[in-house]
């Protein structure tokens, strides 16, 4: 799978020069945004561009962890709905609710499946335009947090969030680069204990406009701290295309390549409507 990702990425880069129409400005078309494949529960590590968006998002996500030597595996899938508002130029806020969360875990011959819902996450983001080397640059920040006690399981209090610096650069008329430096935090508290985790994540993604309605995205993420050391160096790949009018679809997957991360692959499929 990793080899396939490399091939796709190379293909994207090689064909970038032959892509379709250029955009009006850096943030004019949300098809250039990266695909938000997440590895953390509650999507607290969700990726985005520095461009402010106003849209409705219905998203399927999932992951798989298969550890045969340890006789352990887990599969997860979720359905979430999110909405974003641009209040005025450069400020955005929004909320996401996970309507369905299905998790299956198996250790040796014992397995269990849990179907639940929640949490509700809220976020605020701000950015401003600039120029870098004659190119359009959008830079800003994001704060996102899971509201406690918004999961179905109320015996455990969970919260998490992301504080990130964002940047998106129009590298060429068909290529947009996205960067992020994020702090992730999470805690859970239940009858018998309390646990907290944190990590630093650095991501770099590229969106190549292949056609007027289609962008291919690829990137990498380095995260450390969640497991105590290097969590992962993960490769991402995806596609983002405008289906009709304000409707667009994005799909992507992420594969941790090195590090302590035990998840083998995560994927996402989203349907968005710009407003």
């Amino acid at each position: 799978m990793r080899r396939g990702l490399a091939v796709v990425t190379a293909l994207v880069i090689c064909t970038a020069a032959h892509a379709g129409e250029a955009r009006a400005d850096l943030c004019s078309d949300s098809v250039d945004d990266p695909v938000p494949v997440t590895l953390r529960d509650g999507a607290i590590d969700a990726l985005r561009s520095a461009c402010m968006r106003s849209d409705l998002d219905v998203r399927l996500g999932g992951y798989a962890l298969i550890d045969t030597p340890d006789f352990y595996g887990t599969l997860g899938g979720e359905l979430a709905v999110g909405i974003r508002f641009v209040e005025h130029a450069g400020f955005e806020w929004g909320a996401t609710i996970r309507l369905l969360d299905v998790t299956f875990a198996q250790t040796a011959v014992l397995s269990a499946t849990d179907t639940t819902y929640g949490p509700i996450s809220v976020h605020a983001a701000a950015s401003r335009a600039a120029r870098l080397g004659g190119r359009e640059l959008q830079w800003g920040g994001l704060i996102r947090g899971e509201l406690p006690f918004t999961r179905a399981e109320l015996d455990t209090s969970t919260a998490g969030g992301q504080l990130a610096g964002l940047a998106s650069l129009e590298a060429s008329r068909t290529l947009v680069l996205h960067g992020r430096v994020a702090l992730l935090g999470w805690y859970a508290s239940s009858a018998a204990g309390r646990d907290t985790r944190g990590a630093v994540a650095v991501t770099a993604d590229a969106s190549v406009r292949m056609l007027a309605w289609l962008s291919l995205t690829g990137g990498a993420e380095v995260q450390a701290g969640w497991y105590g050391g290097l969590d992962h160096v993960a490769a991402r790949a995806g596609a983002h295309w405008r289906v009709f009018g304000p409707w667009r679809v994005d799909a992507g997957l992420a594969v941790p390549v090195v590090g302590d991360e035990r998840t083998d692959v995560a994927f996402t499929l989203g349907l968005r409507r710009d407003r």
Partner: peptide
Amino acid sequence: AAVTAAVGMIQLGCPGESCLR
């Protein structure tokens, strides 16, 4: 909708105490 959902889901579900804690 978000507020309604949040209010509906928020309860006084504080985690209990335990010997481990």
